[in-house]
Design a binder for these strands. Structure first.
Lengths: 114, 114
DNA sequence: GGCATGTGTCAATCTTTTCTTACACATGAA
DNA sequence: TTCATGTGTAAGAAAAGATTGACACATGCC
């Protein structure tokens, strides 16, 4: 079980903003019932595949779900996603501590400090 | 200590998106060190007052901070803010449970279902 | 009165996210 | 080959969020 306790500010930010969207909350809820592949999940929760793809990307980037490309028996490539069991405990103190390691304005936005 | 455990989907969403912004994380961090009034806080963390005002609004709406208008000794109206001691524990199960009470698309956005 | 400080808010703008449509490529089955 | 299903992504439109600057109004003080 991944313990999201001492995340850096940037990581915490990524996790929180990933959770700050209704679709993504529903996606996590859906995956909590079991792993699933993109196209099927898209049909089940009634969302376009490209859109779901984008949201899954964001969730995976935050480490909340994990995806793996697998070959079905029939030989088709299927991208399965599942929730990454996590526990996140947030308090003002935790936020204060994390805020200390917030990169200026997320600087170069992706890479580290130049 | 406010315990954010069984939030409705909409409430959880509000909290998470409130925390999904670097400025707001810093604001919480700053207020964790003690209450402060808007203009001063704005100077201390180097942010324009209208902007800080907006962020505080969002944080208060999520129940993470509370503000109170007070009269200073000199008679000036000062708006003091402080963090609302909270504990938030998030797991996939918590998200799944909360997702069940997510209003369609937050419907009318503010009021409940028509 | 004029200046500094506090409050609040609106309008316009810039930026970021979100979402759709359309495309490309692959495989199995009819 | 054609159809159904799977993958991924890029371009552009639409919507939401962030930010600035300019107001208005209040009080204490010189």
């Amino acid at each position: 079980m991944r313990d999201l306790s001492d995340l850096t500010g940037d990581e915490l930010l990524k996790v929180m903003s990933a959770l700050g969207n209704p679709h993504r909350l529903r996606i996590i809820a859906a995956l909590a019932e079991g792993r699933n592949y993109v196209s099927r999940l898209a049909r089940e929760i009634g969302m376009s595949r490209p859109l779901l793809h984008m949201h899954l990307q964001r969730l995976e980037g935050a480490g909340l779900v994990t995806g793996s490309l697998e070959l079905s028996e029939s030989g088709k490539a299927m991208k399965y996603f599942e929730v990454a069991p996590f526990t996140l405990r947030i308090t003002p103190e935790v936020v204060a501590e994390a805020a200390r390691t917030l990169s200026d304005a997320e600087e170069t936005k992706s890479g580290g400090v130049k």
